[in-house]
């Protein structure tokens, strides 16, 4: 077993494959994610950076954690670029998760605007992680646009419905040569584990932990599940029998010459 199992984003090496999303925000959640799920990357909505003076979210994030500001609130590529620049000015670094939504009900990402924004931001030297609907062509365009990873959604954000787009995420894992980070909709540790078994590079989750009865314990459960899934992937999953048992006598035993 490879003990140096890391993955690289924007030239930075990460050991933990759990990324904390930003949707539901709480100081307890950040603490739990870092302590119990060993998160090394934490998403931060630029639109929520400044809060009550004595409780600035930035103060609660340990220095060894990489901030991943997102462009939530952007409705097109231009707005996403402006928010990314603001985040850089605020001192949040060069990482940016592009999120562009033109639907307030499902908050589904707009792939075509996301591709445009990715290209513009990559040219400005950002490490761009685009949140996208798992479509192979869009993913290829994102690679060409200069993305550092691709972040397909598992199911509508906040829905806790798990891997509704499983087949399509598998295609991205198989065909795209960048880390595939599964984002949005993961509701249970078992679903996170499954995505990792499929070959995802990392999992981003938020609601599932934020709304759990016991946040630290749920954070720990996610950390363990992600690690287990990763190990299963590295070990090479055993044969899965899709239908019934296999015959012990070969079906082709009658062949003679």
């Amino acid at each position: 077993m490879n003990t140096q199992d890391t993955f690289v984003l924007g030239g930075k090496e990460f050991h933990s494959r759990f990324i904390l999303g930003s949707g539901k925000y709480s100081m307890d959640l950040i603490k739990a994610a870092v302590e119990y799920a060993k998160a090394e990357i934490i998403t931060l909505a630029v639109r929520r950076t400044n809060t009550k003076k004595e409780e600035n979210i930035l103060d609660y994030i340990p220095k060894n954690v990489t901030l991943l500001p997102n462009t939530s609130g952007a409705r097109d590529a231009k707005e996403a670029v402006r928010i990314a620049r603001m985040s850089r000015e605020l001192g949040c670094g060069d990482f940016v998760k592009v999120e562009i939504m033109r639907d307030s009900k499902y908050l589904l990402p707009d792939n075509s605007e996301t591709i445009k924004a990715t290209e513009m931001l990559a040219k400005e030297g950002f490490v761009v992680l685009p949140y996208m609907y798992p479509d192979l062509y869009a993913a290829r365009d994102l690679v060409n646009a200069g993305a550092a990873a691709v972040m397909p959604l598992a199911s509508p954000i906040g829905s806790n419905k798990g891997l509704a787009t499983k087949e399509f995420i598998q295609i991205l894992v198989d065909e795209i040569d960048l880390p595939i980070i599964v984002d949005a909709g993961i509701g249970r540790p078992s679903q996170a584990c499954e995505a990792m078994e499929m070959g995802a590079a990392a999992i981003m989750a938020n609601t599932a932990i934020a709304t759990a009865g016991d946040i630290p314990t749920m954070a720990k459960a996610f950390g363990n599940a992600i690690e287990a899934g990763r190990q299963a992937y590295l070990a090479g999953l055993g044969r899965v029998l899709e239908r019934g048992a296999s015959a012990s006598d070969p079906l082709t035993g009658f062949l003679r010459d």
Partner: peptide, 11 residues
């Protein structure tokens, strides 16, 4: 509950 004072950005 978690009070939030701002979740908004003017673009």
């Amino acid at each position: 509950l978690q009070p939030v004072l701002n979740d908004y950005i003017y673009v």
